[in-house]
């Protein structure tokens, strides 16, 4: 078992302050309104360091999913700026957006595998941004991609499941395929939207461990939305507390106190 990245690496906030140019992602004053005049995100500013896991915690409906989807523009931000790989994502045309999306892997709460495709097809769909639609349709992926897909399946412990249909897998297995698909993109950033919410506690820890190891090996900074504060504390190198559409806490897991939790979630009865 490798030493988790987060424990060894310096705190990412400190790292980004000491080397301002090295941020993997910078979000500035991000605002999202689904209904005009009712912002869900009220001016979020965050800088993500080029390594480590950043956990975003906060009550349901506070805009965690919206925030993460604004980054790869599955949701269109209302205003604000997101800088990634030296480009402002909010200004990109649809074509350039596709090119940038290829560099951002995403893992979903309900896995979002294509149920009727096989596991290996799901993993290889991570390369769709690089393969022409015609070749993709004929399942003609470059041999290197196929090799990598199989080694990723090996890495997530599903080497024997390559030809099984995704809908025959258990929740934990599906999320492993989801992680393999995201990493198949060879991303420069990984977004995970509640990756463990549909899983039991043991499987949740296994999935988070896997994600931590694989992203550390590859040096991929990761942003994780997560309900479970204890799980976030265990795996993240940085915690961001979101409440009412604004950042109310930003710091290392050790700094997150009960008072902070009260402020993020409101009330205190649930703590004891």
């Amino acid at each position: 078992m490798t030493v988790p990245a987060s424990r060894a690496a310096p705190h990412p906030v400190a790292a980004s302050i000491s080397a301002p140019g090295a941020a993997a992602l910078a979000i500035r004053n991000l605002i999202k309104e689904y209904v005009r005049g009712q912002p869900v995100l009220k001016g979020i500013s965050l800088t993500i360091a080029p390594n480590g896991i950043t956990a975003i915690i906060g009550p349901s409906g506070t805009g965690k999913s919206t925030l993460i989807r604004c980054i790869n523009r599955l949701v269109e931000p209302t205003s604000g700026e997101i800088v990634f790989e030296g480009r402002s994502l909010t200004l990109l045309s649809r074509r350039s957006l596709r090119v940038v999306r290829r560099l951002i892997g995403m893992v979903f709460q309900e896995y979002n595998l294509v149920e009727r495709l096989t596991v290996i097809e799901n993993v290889l769909s991570g390369r769709l941004g690089y393969v022409s639609p015609f070749k993709a349709w004929l399942r003609r992926f470059p041999p290197d991609d196929v090799t990598e897909a199989f080694s990723l399946l090996e890495a997530v412990g599903l080497a024997d499941y390559a030809q099984q249909r995704a809908d025959s897998l258990s929740g934990g297995q599906r999320q492993r395929v989801g992680i393999a698909r995201a990493l198949m993109q060879r991303p420069k950033l990984l977004l995970a939207d509640e990756p463990t919410s549909s899983l039991d506690p043991k499987t949740s820890v296994e999935v988070m461990t896997l994600m931590q190891e694989l992203t550390f090996e590859r040096g991929i900074p990761t942003i994780v939305n997560i309900h479970n504060v204890d799980l976030a504390r265990r795996f993240a190198s940085r915690m961001v507390g979101l409440s009412g559409g604004a950042v109310v806490f930003d710091g290392p897991p050790e700094a997150l106190s009960e008072d902070h939790l009260k402020q993020i979630y409101g009330g205190e009865d649930w703590l004891h």
């Binding site: 940038v100 294509v114 769709l128 941004g129 022409s132």
Partner: peptide, 8 residues
């Protein structure tokens, strides 16, 4: 999920 990979 497929759109998020940058697929055309």
């Amino acid at each position: 999920a497929v759109r998020a990979t940058g697929a055309p």
